[in-house]
Amino acid sequence: MNTKNFAKQNSHLDLNDPEVQKVFSLYENHAEVPYISPQRNLKDWLNLVSIGSESLVPKQNMVRFEEDILPGHLILLWRINFGTFTTISGYPKYFEYNYGINTAQALNEIQQKGYAKELSAIDSLPYLNAAQLKAILKKFGVTGYSKLKKSELMELAKEPLTEEQLAPHFKIRGYQITPAGEALLIKYPEVVDRHPKKKF
């Protein structure tokens, strides 16, 4: 049974489960078995694979780079680089089913490795709409904002309010790729080149 790097993403799986064993047998010739979510119905998925309605994660997507990351980590970095990925963004299905990664775990890993970072509350103000910005300003007794545009509201919020004051009043935070993350995308351009593109 292919259990290489088992603990990295699939330690939650029961290796004595016959369906888990079937999944692992399908990936016997991969560098490692892709992430299998606890929510995945293995019986249904195995049936779909058997009739050709579902595909296996490509072998090339389960080969780790020297930085101990998978191609899926790079696609996540590429996605963050658009500036629209936030703490409330959903995780596209392709991260698990095409790239074999646990996206939430991968997000933590690329931050720990210094390839991306979560933005502060102040730097995440652009992700709020005008009504939300006005509501925050009202809470702090700031006046003169009723006719201001969103960009002006953000600047008004930054003037008197500190990070500590703003942080508790909204949960959404953006993410930003770091220079080290940008260098990683340059180092492995083939991963993004073969990924289907669409505008974000």
Rank of each mutant, 00 (worst) to 15 (best):
I69R: 00
F24M: 12
I186Y: 06
K171E: 14
L125D: 05
D123T: 10
I110T: 08
K43N: 13
R40Q: 11
F170Q: 06
N81A: 15
F24H: 10
L133D: 05
L184Y: 03
D14W: 02
I101G: 00
I88H: 12
G174W: 01
L46C: 06
H195Y: 12
R173E: 06
G100S: 05
K8P: 00
P189S: 04
P58G: 06
E66C: 05
L46P: 07
E32H: 13
A106P: 00
V20A: 02
L46F: 04
K197P: 05
L184Q: 06
K22F: 01
Y127W: 11
K198N: 14
L133C: 11
S151E: 13
G100P: 03
P92V: 03
K59W: 08
V63S: 08
L77R: 00
M62G: 01
T84P: 02
H12A: 09
Y97P: 04
E159F: 09
D193I: 11
A130E: 12
L148A: 13
H195M: 10
K138G: 07
K134R: 14
T162Q: 07
G144C: 05
T143D: 12
K171R: 15
A167F: 07
E19C: 09
A116Q: 02
G100Y: 02
E28V: 12
K134H: 04
P71W: 00
E32V: 07
K4W: 10
Y175L: 10
I101C: 02
N108Q: 13
D193E: 15
P38R: 07
Y91A: 13
K187E: 12
I177G: 03
S151C: 09
L42F: 00
K4E: 15
Q132W: 06
V142T: 10
